[in-house]
Amino acid sequence: MTLSYLWIPATLAAAAAQTGRNATQRQLTKTIGTVGATQVRFLYGFPFAILALALVRLALGEPIPSPNATFLVYVLGGASTQISATALMLSAMRERSLSVVTAYTKTEPVQVALFGLLILGDPLTLGMAFAIVIATLGVIIMSLKREADLMSSGLRPVVYGIASGAFFALAAIGFRGAILALPEGSTLMRSTTTLVWGLGTQTVILLVWLELFDRKALVASFKAWRPSLGAGFLGALASQFWFIGFALTTAANVRTLALVEVLMAQAVSHRLLSQVTTRRELVGMGLILVGVGLLLAFQH
């Protein structure tokens, strides 16, 4: 496998780690609230990112790239929009199942393809656009309840989920832009450096926010350090692989292949939460697989 195709296993690894992190954070919302559960992935993930950068520095013998103004702007944009996206996603998860909320947020690929074209000039061919639409259609079909009533649990979780997808799209573009803005370093070094800056920025933002507006949630997140540590590790691991993918190909490619996370979330819901997979969800999953398969085919 050539280096350019390493984004495929990197994305699959990221999706698997993120599925585990989402499930862990969902449980934390019950004890420390939405904002508290949002910040643990950053606060507890930051030390793991620093460790990863130290190991990469030691293994590769490369200097750590110095940030420039463009890099910092992209990092700040990616960090702030990802915080908003995560908070919206966890809010929706309090009202809908993990697999359904994941489906709403995964309307993201269409948006990330457009943002990537407009902001970064990432290529978007007709074939790629068709594959993205097919896979996203599968997500939409999966999000329907068995009674075909989208609003059966209210409009709010739907809005939260779709808005979360939009912010995740902007975050993906921001972090890919930051990686590309670094003038030197290998793929692994630039992606890991961006990870440290991103998680560091997010940690500072959320610590200040919680100290000012929700000190109770901040204290609760420290008390719940054991499950929070697990969420932080899985979050940092997922982000590391996401960033490697962003360094190797367009964010649209990465986030479309990442739709396999919907299938992973469905498996988690089925096994751990005793939720039944409907025929409509099976059709949606089939379309996701077709869309992802077409996307990979168009890479040749």
Rank of each mutant, 00 (worst) to 15 (best):
T81H: 01
Q82Y: 03
Q82G: 03
I83K: 04
S84H: 02
S84C: 12
S84W: 11
A85H: 02
T86Q: 13
T86W: 11
T86I: 15
A87Q: 12
A87C: 06
A87W: 14
L88K: 05
M89D: 08
M89F: 15
M89S: 12
M89K: 08
L90K: 08
L90I: 09
S91A: 15
A92K: 04
M93S: 07
M93F: 11
E95R: 15
E95D: 13
R96A: 04
S97L: 13
L98W: 04
S99C: 04
V101T: 14
T102R: 10
T102N: 08
T102K: 05
A103D: 02
A103P: 06
Y104A: 03
Y104T: 01
T105N: 13
E108S: 02
P109E: 11
V110C: 05
Q111G: 02
A113H: 08
A113Y: 08
A113R: 08
L114M: 14
L117C: 09
L117R: 07
L118H: 03
L118Q: 05
I119E: 01
L120N: 03
G121V: 08
G121Y: 06
G121W: 04
D122A: 10
P123I: 10
L124P: 01
L124H: 12
L124D: 06
T125L: 14
T125P: 00
T125E: 12
L126M: 13
L126E: 10
G127P: 00
M128P: 08
A129R: 12
A129W: 13
F130G: 13
F130E: 04
F130Q: 12
F130K: 12
A131Q: 07
A131V: 08
A131C: 06
A131R: 07
I134A: 12
I134K: 06
I134P: 00
I134C: 09
A135D: 11
T136C: 06
G138P: 09
G138V: 06
G138H: 09
V139F: 00
I140S: 00
I141K: 08
I141A: 07
I141W: 01
M142P: 06
M142R: 02
S143E: 03
L144K: 10
L144Q: 13
L144N: 09
K145G: 13
K145T: 11
R146V: 10
R146E: 14
R146Y: 00
E147R: 13
E147T: 15
E147F: 10
A148C: 13
A148L: 15
D149M: 11
D149A: 12
L150R: 06
L155R: 15
R156E: 08
P157S: 06
P157W: 04
V158L: 14
V158R: 07
V158T: 12
V158E: 12
V159K: 03
V159R: 02
Y160N: 06
G161M: 13
G161L: 13
G161H: 07
G161I: 14
I162F: 09
I162N: 01
I162D: 03
I162G: 00
A163G: 02
A163P: 02
S164V: 03
G165M: 05
G165D: 02
A166D: 05
A166S: 14
A166E: 03
F167K: 00
F168E: 10
A169M: 00
A169C: 00
L170V: 05
L170D: 04
A171H: 11
A171C: 10
A172F: 06
A172L: 05
A172R: 01
I173N: 05
I173C: 03
G174V: 03
F175L: 13
R176P: 00
R176T: 01
